[in-house]
Design a protein around this nucleic acid. Structure first.
Lengths: 272, 272
DNA sequence: GCCTTCGCTTGATCGAAGTCAAGGCGCAAC
DNA sequence: GTTGCGCCTTGACTTCGATCAAGCGAAGGC
């Protein structure tokens, strides 16, 4: 079942190869926000999608690729606030973000939300649900989003036939383990905020979007929550970074001015 | 190559089934420390080993199981302080702890160690190295340890033939993702310490050891580092918990007295 | 024996970030 | 228009845990 696919035959993003290395020319207008991946076809994945790499290592295996496409379902769009899945829901599928931004969060015993991550187009959510066979977190749209849904049982079956897919799943999960440990250190508020912005910048760059100008889809409170800080602290740190001319921020529009200096500030969080 | 296997034909641990639910009778002596798994044979894994579960879901597949055994190498013993692997070493294998305790840690840009985890017999280390093909952390013995070494390339190949193995690897990695997020919350020192001790207790219980009496293999400084606290704070919290009669601790010997009260104290960390 | 070292504890002080409170700005509804 | 409501910022004060400093006891070397 392909849902609303036509609704997303939208402007394709900036050319992949060049955009990876070249920042967008300054336009005076805010950076492109809510970017959307192109939609792929029977033999090509959405350009930003992580699973596009599955076929790279060993060359194409057309029948297997077709099989992989058969278990993909394009779903959405969904409005901001939409729950992709909820904590404790039975685990049936993993999702690749196709457009917009998704946050994942857990709610502790007393109703306090803890944000686990923000997910950009091309990134995968749901891999942490395999162990318990239930999603251990909520996944909530921060924007209008669109997704690719991959039935996980079908994917597992296919992975035994398609070693490249199995490897890709191993790689993605391994990466998630490392990523989850990044925030666990005892870092200062400045280090955390700087690392957060640089991480976003790098991930935008990896998907072909500008690494120096982008829009934050989430409110300050969500950033603070994710970084385990108070919203007031995030606000103060951003002001400090702006006063030092490391960046400019107006509302949710970010413009990184001195990436190297920021990287130096965040070096303990990032380089390990 | 089987190394030093004879050296570990030691007393088998407490019977699995009963030990899972029954605490050891108090003996007046300290709890058994540095417990060791039995060694398995051609068709059975070491009793505590996580990979023993591989064959459970679908019944046995003897030829595949033999293949899995062929890629296992029993190594050790190694003394306290021994590096199983170091950060940036090429990734070749994952390890299951067979005896003793292993810690993993990263060292940041300025030489500060950050401990990522402590690993008990039966637990697996190295799964976070797949993505970069280099270990992203150090793994260091806290005790005299013994290990099972699984060649990862061989394991991946076998996993395509043995769906149960692939699933087990997915499960293990998925669990690691969830586990890595546990400490990331902003919890108080008391909550962290209580959760740490309960987590250890539960993991000992799952391996058939006492859940209420055990020995900490690591110095206070390592516990503090792992929990992102100062060693002095850990010391003070332990004293506080002891003053409230929740536990007794003498040096590194722990005796949990009021597990329910501890669990209540740590509920925000554990129940999510 | 003595001395050093290391791990642990305890007390006193300090500081980074949290909390509380107030106010501003943008935006949608009326 | 203005009212109300999020979202964000800023200032004043508090607090939890870090840091500094001292001391104790066990283990190991000589």
């Amino acid at each position: 079942m392909i849902v609303n696919r036509a609704a997303f035959s939208m402007p394709t993003p900036y050319a992949e190869a060049s955009a990876l290395t070249t920042a967008h020319p300054p336009t005076g207008k805010p950076a492109p926000n809510n970017p959307i991946a192109d939609d792929g076809d029977a033999l090509h994945f959405c350009a930003t999608c992580t699973f596009g790499q599955v076929c790279m290592p060993n060359g194409y295996d057309k029948s297997a690729l077709r099989a992989l496409h058969c278990l993909v379902e394009h779903i959405g769009p969904f409005p901001s606030g939409h729950h992709v899945f909820r904590s404790h829901d039975p685990f049936t599928a993993i999702y690749s973000v196709r457009a917009g931004m998704v946050k994942t969060s857990v709610v502790d015993d007393l109703g306090r939300e803890q944000i686990l991550g923000f997910f950009l187009p091309g990134e995968i959510i749901g891999l942490n649900a395999i162990y318990t066979e239930r999603y251990p977190c909520n996944a909530i749209a921060l924007d209008t989003i669109a997704l690719c849904r991959f039935s996980f049982p079908a994917m597992v079956t296919l992975a035994t036939r398609l070693p490249g897919l199995q490897e890709q799943l191993f790689r993605l999960m391994s990466k998630d383990i490392v990523k989850a440990t990044l925030l666990a250190g005892d870092f200062s508020a400045d280090e955390r905020v700087a690392a957060f912005l640089l991480d976003l910048a790098d991930r935008y760059a990896a998907r072909g979007f500008s690494a120096t100008r982008f829009r934050l889809s989430m409110p300050r409170a969500d950033i603070a929550n994710y970084l385990r800080l108070a919203a007031e602290t995030v606000s103060r740190v951003l002001r400090r970074l702006q006063d030092q001319a490391l960046l400019r921020i107006e509302g949710r529009e970010v413009h990184l001015l001195q990436v190297d200096a920021m990287r130096h500030l965040a070096r303990c969080v990032l380089h390990r």
